[in-house]
Design a protein around this nucleic acid. Sequence first.
RNA 1: GGCCCGGUGGUCAAGCGGUUAAGACACCGCCCUUUCACGGCGGUUUCACGAGUUCGAAUCUCGUCCGGGUCACCA
Length: 488
Amino acid sequence: MQEKTVRTRFAPSPTGYMHVGNLRTALYEYLIAKSQGGTFVLRIEDTDQERLVEGAVDIIYNTLRQVGLQHDEGPDIGGEYGPYVQSERKQIYLPYAQQLIEAGKAYYCFCTRERLESLHEGKDGSEFGGYDRHCRSLPKEEVDRLLAAGTPYVIRQKMPVEGSTTFEDAVYGSITIENRELEDQILIKSDGYPTYNFANVIDDHLMHITHVVRGCEYLTSTPKYKLLYEAFGWEIPVYVHLPLIMGKNEDGSVSKLSKRHGSTGFADLIREGFLPRTIVNYIALLGWCPKENRELFTLPELVESFSIDGISKSPAVFDYDKLEWFNGEYIRAMSQDDFIAAAMPYFRQVFPQGEQNWPVLASILQPRVTKLTQIPEMLAFFRELPDYPAEFFVNKKSKTNLENSVRMLEAAVTTLQSQQSWTVESLHDALIALAQELGVKNGTLLWPVRIAAAGTLVTPGGAMEILAVLGKEESLRRLSVGLSKIKA
RNA sequence: GGCCCGGUGGUCAAGCGGUUAAGACACCGCCCUUUCACGGCGGUUUCACGAGUUCGAAUCUCGUCCGGGUCACCA
């Protein structure tokens, strides 16, 4: 008996915004498929014609490409079960709904929006129990008459009046809901488009989806899906509901991650300087835990390690600190060439043109930044020597004070003036030799040199690196500025 | 409010009846050191509460509390 090929699908709505919750769902769908040699399908769910956003589909393609979640079937590459855009499948859904009507599992509803709204208002919101099933018992002749007259209608699913519905979830186990809690949901809208719920079931079945993966906000509506599958007599897919990703609110509470939680969109995170691989790695761990005790995973490694039983049930709070740590790890793991290439746009904010000592800049920044966007600020002192007080030259630990610093700087100037080679190594050799010659701790000499060169207490890199980037002429100029500050 | 789901440090979490309750982030201290960072070492902080079951409960059961989700011609 051969196992059926696993097929999962990512089914986003083209809203123009991809937040990490969606992306994480896509990731898990990809991982579930790929970890079992399965197929990952992309389907665009654009049944809400009122919310269409220009260019939104491209954002979806771009995002998936950036994180490496390559789909095997989809609107752009086709596949055996297309089309993969729901608006192009519009004519598929109605016959299925009509089939349900004939089977007595669904019915036409002619209620106006006004009547529906008055249902909501009539009782005070909290008591509203859903649609009152007014059209469920309409006589056939009345239905035919209204249809013939061209009355706008929707098609609703008939929910059982009694009993309960139970389904199995791969993460949450067995879940039961009383049927009286279920509303006669709309299958086909008055514009002829299917609702999300209906199109989902039809398409998942037609596309042979074996595992339906989604956020657990859908948990309570899943019995309706099950009932739909049963009404059609179709095999029910495996449901994999994912714990929600939560965002911190301003008041300290948490709620389902959304736009209002600031920069949690994929594009926002990229703009802030997070690497796609960082985001993938971090969100993979938000709700899933590997068997082995480790945290750094590339996408192929995730495919290797992933399994559904590692998915947790409790919601996870999105933590920027941890995300930054991951990003730092990945930045440090880059080759220097890759780092320079990635950092160049930020380098250019400080050095708009011309050549610089890129390798030295990379060597001082790569271990220090957790986001590439931090680069311009860290390098600002190269662009222009900041104004700083003479007190900067006083440092107890380096055993240096104003008086000392004058001596050190003067000696350094002399040494550096005759310095031919201007590399980190040669500067290092020259200055260390000088410290020995002067009989002082390295720090006693290097502290004032570093301060004078940078004009700031905290610098990325040490004195030699800074001098190397500055170049001989500018270095000597800054050292003399330092000297004049102390003497003033 | 009804229904559904959840509850191990500030955060992500391992744990599946017997553990000194892993690990990571963050935080603090020390080491390295010309500052910062990296790296190394160490530390603070946790089983929501109450009953049961059991020789033994973070692990099983029930109740309470707390948190979240959901109740559309949105997806």
